[in-house]
């Protein structure tokens, strides 16, 4: 089962290593991990997607909480959260296929951000399933390259994961 956790960490050297090292040492599987700034420059926010049952998840949360540089660990319930991922995909395209690709892109509310005689770059934002689906549709044309960010996630409504201590 997949779980998503938000981790607020001190913005210090080596913190990412401590977290990834913890996952490998304890045998936890990371599906995706994304890190970025928060509105407080002293802290960063990580969104980690973990595979495992509830016992595994509980250990992940507890072990992460033990790290001195980790300020807060929150489990994000997928039913009560919004999740987004961004991907940019370079697809083979020629004059015969370009318009069909553009139709698909429009159905997915994605965007074309680069055009050349033999390729297109498509930008898509959405939850994991949507990005997967677009990727699936584009495969027939030939995906030359793809970069995905890993997901970021946030609880709906006014509840917040506090950034500071």
């Amino acid at each position: 089962m997949k779980h998503t956790i938000a981790v607020i960490v001190e913005n210090k050297p080596g913190v990412l290593t401590r977290i990834s090292g913890l996952f490998s040492r304890r045998g936890f599987n990371i599906d995706s991990l994304s890190v970025g700034a928060t509105d407080n420059p002293a802290y960063s926010r990580m969104t980690i997607s973990v595979e495992g049952d509830d016992v595994v998840l509980e250990q992940v949360v507890k072990q992460l909480s033990k790290l001195i540089n980790v300020i807060r660990v929150s489990r994000l319930d997928p039913d009560e959260s919004v999740e987004r991922e961004l991907a940019i995909i370079k697809v083979s395209a020629n004059k015969d296929t370009r318009s069909e690709i553009m139709q698909i892109v429009s159905v997915f509310r994605a965007r074309i951000i680069d055009v050349s005689p033999r390729s297109l770059i498509i930008e898509v934002t959405g939850d994991e399933k949507k990005v997967d689906a677009l990727q699936q549709m584009l495969r027939q044309f030939g995906i030359k390259e793809m970069a995905r960010t890993g997901k970021v996630s946030m609880v709906r409504g006014s509840k917040v994961v506090q950034t500071g201590p």
């Binding site: 050297p13 080596g14 290593t17 090292g21 913890l22 040492r25 001195i68």
Partner: peptide
């Protein structure tokens, strides 16, 4: 040594 001892210390500093 901070990299090496990360999994065997409670915390470490450089």
């Amino acid at each position: 040594i901070t990299g090496i001892t990360m999994p065997i210390t409670k915390h470490n500093y450089l």
